[in-house]
Deep mutational scan, measured.
Amino acid sequence: MATGGRRGAAAAPLLVAVAALLLGAAGHLYPGEVCPGMDIRNNLTRLHELENCSVIEGHLQILLMFKTRPEDFRDLSFPKLIMITDYLLLFRVYGLESLKDLFPNLTVIRGSRLFFNYALVIFEMVHLKELGLYNLMNITRGSVRIEKNNELCYLATIDWSRILDSVEDNYIVLNKDDNEECGDICPGTAKGKTNCPATVINGQFVERCWTHSHCQKVCPTICKSHGCTAEGLCCHSECLGNCSQPDDPTKCVACRNFYLDGRCVETCPPPYYHFQDWRCVNFSFCQDLHHKCKNSRRQGCHQYVIHNNKCIPECPSGYTMNSSNLLCTPCLGPCPKVCHLLEGEKTIDSVTSAQELRGCTVINGSLIINIRGGNNLAAELEANLGLIEEISGYLKIRRSYALVSLSFFRKLRLIRGETLEIGNYSFYALDNQNLRQLWDWSKHNLTITQGKLFFHYNPKLCLSEIHKMEEVSGTKGRQERNDIALKTNGDQASCENELLKFSYIRTSFDKI
């Protein structure tokens, strides 16, 4: 039985969820670079991206490699990797027998973001014989899940209580170790020597080791999670996991709180800001991140802002960003909400898709409305799209047979046209069989910064309504002859009103 693990408890099935942008060198404390989270699957090609990484700022997932063999891993080693800020997950990587050479110096898994409450997941690794993470000293947050690894031993010899604050939620089941077939031998045991430290858990006094050649490092209890030197002297209180010299914040392997210019500090002093819960960055760093993602459509890219001495992905609820200094300031009234469309555009074809934009005031991208039916549609669209004030790209209304009016965009005031449909149009209306009105132009103002209007096959939309939009939106004169079809717009509506004058002759039985 794995020490510190839980057996036999019912657990939810383990679901495996399925960018080499360097964020800056980590400095003297770390020998390499800070790398983003990685999802490495199918083959070993991307694994080489770990070569210079000291910190993975995010998670590391290595999974679904069915053609790899043990010899493929023999020359692979990433000794610079010290810390993973989120979680480490391995799933069905064939041929991998140990992690001792792959990650010989991995010391800390912070667990800032977890995989279903777990910071370390080893699942269905069919050839893994031992973990071998002999320098792993601290899992700051989260638990361990090690399950269905039929060859995995050296679990009962690990004292997880020396690595985690609590072992109650560890789930370590259905491994070879369960069948008591392992016969784990710690260093020196074969020669009758006791080389590794022994600890007591559940009444068992057991030597602690990761492999037959690597003991588990056990520091004096007084050192807590700070770690200790090879001689057993406690590291500085700002260290986490390990250090090369005692009581020196510049000799830590990793930091308990924050890293700044080669030393570990309790908090980031001005003019620095907390970033990702582990390091200090200056304003320029946060500003660069903001600008890199301002026009990016890459998933996970955030326009970072500053709030409460932190550089964070977005302002919290009730705050909006001051564009001059990136500071989050309290909103006066309802907060603006910028919604970034991942692929640059979004099609609204149902109430469900409209709900995804609920509360958005600025759309960074283009909207395509293609709704053919739905219950209580006008009210639903207004509830979900009615706060949109600005669209950076274009607005396209296409084959939306259920629409009679666009009044559900009740606050839309600006279409920038930074991206144009077919390279020309910022407003595009095609084949809307029941569209009769755009907006009530006596109450609604709309500016279209650039781009043209396109109207074709809107049989109940009168040309007068379209011409009014040209005047109000500032697009009059931009359109070419064929942009607004004269014969297919309003051709099934009563669009022309003329005053009919009647004269009559009164007659009676005795007068003409």
Rank of each mutant, 00 (worst) to 15 (best):
L164K: 14
G95V: 02
Y134L: 07
I62T: 02
Q303I: 09
Y272W: 08
F275C: 00
S143T: 10
G203T: 06
D72H: 11
C239H: 01
H214S: 04
T329Y: 08
N105T: 06
Q303A: 09
L76H: 05
Y272S: 12
S166I: 12
G203Q: 10
L260P: 03
P187Q: 03
E151W: 10
E207L: 10
C311L: 15
P36N: 15
N295R: 12
T157H: 07
R41M: 04
V305F: 06
H214I: 07
C280M: 00
K67Q: 00
R298Y: 09
Q287I: 10
F66Q: 01
N257Y: 07
C335R: 03
C35Y: 01
C301I: 00
K148G: 00
G241C: 08
H214Q: 08
P70Q: 13
K217L: 09
E124F: 00
D277K: 06
R298C: 09
R41A: 00
P270E: 10
E49C: 14
L240R: 05
V218C: 14
H274A: 14
H28A: 14
S77K: 06
N105H: 05
P270F: 10
T157G: 05
Q276V: 10
V206L: 15
F283E: 09
L89M: 15
L44K: 05
V121H: 05
C335A: 01
L44T: 08
R69K: 03
Q299F: 10
K217N: 14
C228I: 02
L99M: 12
I122K: 00
C53W: 00
T320I: 10
L260W: 03
D178K: 10
H214K: 05
R162S: 08
V305P: 02
L88W: 02
L233H: 12
F123G: 01
R297F: 07
P246F: 11
D248N: 06
D169H: 15
N43T: 10
N117W: 03
K193I: 03
C335E: 03
D178L: 08
I201G: 07
V305G: 09
C264L: 00
I62R: 01
H236E: 12
P334F: 08
T107I: 14
I146G: 00
P270D: 11
S112D: 15
H302Y: 12
L76K: 15
R279L: 08
S77Y: 08
E151L: 09
N202V: 04
Y30K: 02
I158F: 04
T329S: 08
P104F: 01
K67R: 13
S213W: 13
C53H: 01
E238G: 05
K100I: 08
P31L: 12
C286R: 03
N42S: 03
T250H: 09
E130M: 11
E130K: 13
M38P: 02
Y87C: 00
L233E: 12
N308I: 09
M38Y: 09
T157S: 14
M83K: 04
V144W: 00
C153H: 00
N43I: 04
I172E: 04
T250L: 09
Y304L: 09
V121K: 00
E49S: 15
G241A: 06
I306G: 12
E33M: 15
Q299W: 06
C280V: 02
K191N: 15
F91H: 01
S213G: 07
Q245T: 08
P79H: 07
D277H: 14
R74P: 00
N105R: 07
N150R: 14
L44E: 09
F285I: 03
I158N: 01
P271Q: 13
G132Y: 01
L63V: 05
I222W: 10
N43L: 05
G37P: 03
A190K: 06
T157I: 06
S296P: 05
E124L: 00
I109V: 08
V173R: 14
E180S: 13
N179Y: 00
Q303C: 14
D159I: 05
N117H: 01
F123L: 00
L133K: 00
C286Y: 06
P270S: 11
R74D: 09
Y304I: 07
L289S: 07
D261Y: 15
T189L: 08
C264G: 00
R92W: 04
L60T: 04
K310P: 01
T199S: 09
F73S: 01
P246G: 12
I62D: 00
I185E: 07
D247T: 06
R279T: 02
K217E: 04
Y154A: 03
S112K: 12
C301S: 04
V108G: 01
K224T: 12
C215N: 06
G203H: 08
G132P: 01
T199Y: 08
D247Y: 11
G333F: 15
L60I: 05
N325E: 14
L29W: 09
H307L: 07
G111L: 02
Y319C: 11
V121F: 00
M125P: 01
I82V: 07
I84G: 02
K129L: 02
G183L: 15
R297K: 11
N309Q: 09
L90K: 01
N282Q: 05
C223R: 00
C53F: 00
L81C: 01
L89T: 02
T320L: 08
P79C: 02
I109S: 00
G95H: 09
C215H: 00
S296R: 10
C209I: 03
R208Q: 15
S161W: 10
L152Q: 03
C328I: 02
I306R: 05
H226L: 08
R46M: 03
C186L: 04
F275E: 02
C293M: 07
K148D: 02
S225P: 12
P104T: 01
V144C: 08
K224Y: 11
E71A: 08
V253Y: 13
M137Y: 09
D288M: 11
S225N: 15
C239F: 00
T189C: 06
C186E: 03
G300L: 12
V167D: 03
T320D: 08
P334T: 08
L88Q: 01
